[in-house]
Design a binder for these strands. Structure first.
Lengths: 342, 342
DNA sequence: GTGAAAGCGCTAACAA
DNA sequence: TTGTTAGCGCTTTCAC
């Protein structure tokens, strides 16, 4: 049972004081080079590990960033966390993870936990069922830097990193138009969520820009799911004047649509073009390969952390900063919509 | 700039002492119910948040579990983390994430960081390129509970939670035999990693059990990648007596194999059966749907945490515990190997 | 260039 | 049932 070595132990060993040892280990300029070496050698020899808790208490900062995600099981968020971690580590920060499981309550508890843990900053992607934002307001009041990523509420005065959903949807729809499809449908997501509404608007915007009539019949209220994709297509095929292309709100929705189209022996992309959104991994492995819009997940993680860093630094100088990062969506055109290639 | 409220502030407010406030907030039995209420009310009113850092320093435990994974971007690990977090949270623990990026150095730095952060326990899935284990030995020496999951080194006397790769491979191979395939091939993974070697042995074991000759020609040294799957099939098809089925070391390998088989107009599963390992999400969406072996990722996370909890408790009572959890792989038979269904 | 001493905020003996 | 006191391990001001 090796007891933990402290700087006092080292000081003892070297007949000096904790203060000197502390300074030496922190590379303080007023300590002689020789002494620094001696101290470091002793620390090494005694297997000293700095007690970061004590250090944090004294310094008033923990070196920890709290990240709230809906679920680590969702690829997208794992990828963002990867982005965050990859650069946070280099800056000497560590990442505390909290899952909201799409629940507002858990989310609030996560904030609470982080505040208590005295994290130096918080990053959040808002839970789907969060409609009440007092926990964020509370966090803001206690002056802790906080950044939203991917899912934000822009009315709280909290900075955010998002991708441009409107633009992504616009590009996707424009692409279908350019491929010569004439009646382009959309399966949308839950409309109370901004990201999904933005995609709907992007779809509409592209149609208008091309002087194409927006037909309400061609907009199916769906969800992020294979089933919604199937239902949407079932609905569309019943129309007297059915569509010949689909911009789906998400890749899984697009996948369901493709399955249903295949079941109806409709040829993709010849008779029907499909494009999704998210760039899920399966997209390049299904037949036909799925056209989609990439959301730059890793980049999003990095940008979020950088923004948080700015907030943390500026917080010290009391300079308010208002910066929202909008990432460009990246179109990935594959076989499901590339009619010209066939 | 609202300064942080401390228990001293509350004590002041109520004309009592920090000790009493602390006890009240911690629901200490010797404090009267009335006073507890008063204290809690004041804490609420003043927006007090317990400083967990100070508490940790005093108590000598942080309530934090350190988790080292190769990458948060890999689905598998996100899923395990989900499992860990879902139950750790309920037990009042938080999760500090560290990515090794498959590098031994980063891994060692992660251990270092965790030791310094005084985490209460560590969970690790070993990086691919780790061949030197001194950082784990160091961790063990400093008496911190530590658990390996998925990727372990069983020679370090560190407890682990694994799935039974041998059994999974055995089941997969047995299944192909039962489907009437006669010459069953295997594309293996890097042989220095135990999990891949176990799968190879499981494959061999099943053949022997069924009195089938193990043909070295039918074992292709590959990797976890689409390319390895393609190369493997290319190799096999050149044989004078090619195989009619494949157990691939991983789903992506199986995917590559399927692509190559399709390119060669070989009908799956009629003329060639394929089964993978891992139950990646894309498996149920490709054509044909992919048979595979599920690794119980979420369950693995939960079991790992439970094991760690045991170690943490037993550490206090100085009872050594030696327990390794082996999870059962779950076969998922889909179209790529279900000849009888067609 | 180094030491003495105080204190970050909390909890737990011990005392009353 | 509550208060007094000490101390977790570190950093930093002030003094020398």
């Amino acid at each position: 049972m090796s007891l933990k070595i402290t700087i006092a132990d080292i000081a003892n060993e070297l007949n000096t004081t904790p203060a000197t040892v502390s300074r030496a280990l922190n590379d303080h300029p007023s300590i002689s080079v020789k002494r620094k070496e001696i101290v470091r050698e002793a620390a090494e020899r005694l297997q000293y590990k700095r007690n970061k808790i004590a250090s944090s208490l004294r310094l008033g900062q923990s070196g920890i960033i709290g990240v709230i995600i809906p679920s680590a099981e969702i690829n997208f968020f794992g990828s963002v966390v990867h982005g965050i971690e990859s650069i946070a580590n280099k800056s000497g920060y560590n990442i505390l993870i909290y899952q909201s499981n799409e629940s507002s309550e858990h989310e609030a508890k996560g904030i609470e936990t982080f505040l208590s843990a005295r994290v130096d900053g918080i990053m959040v992607s808002i839970a789907k069922d969060t409609k009440e934002y007092s926990h964020f307001i509370a966090a803001k009041k206690s002056n802790i830097p906080i950044v939203f990523f991917d899912r934000a509420n822009i009315n709280l005065g909290i900075n955010s990193v998002l991708i441009d959903d409107y633009k992504g949807a616009f590009i996707a729809t424009q692409h279908l138009i350019e491929q010569g499809y004439k009646r382009i449908a959309h399966i949308s997501g839950p409309s109370h969520l901004k990201i999904f509404n933005d995609r709907l608007q992007g779809y509409i915007g592209a149609l208008k820009e091309n002087n194409i009539n927006v037909d309400g019949e061609l907009i199916f209220q769906g969800d992020v799911s294979v089933e919604a994709g199937r239902s949407g297509i079932q609905h569309f095929l019943k129309l007297s004047n059915p569509p010949d292309a689909l911009f789906a709100v998400e890749d899984f929705t697009a996948l369901g649509a493709i399955k249903e189209l295949k079941d109806n022996n409709i040829s993709i992309p010849n008779d029907f073009g499909v494009i999704g959104f998210a760039n899920e991994k399966f997209g390049e492995h299904i037949t036909p390969t799925l056209s989609t819009i990439d959301q730059q997940t890793v980049q999003m993680g990095k940008e979020s952390f950088l923004l948080l860093m700015q907030l943390m630094n500026d917080g010290q100088t009391n300079v308010a900063i208002d910066k929202n990062v909008i990432l460009d969506p990246i179109p990935i055109f594959r076989n499901s919509s590339m009619r010209n290639l066939k």
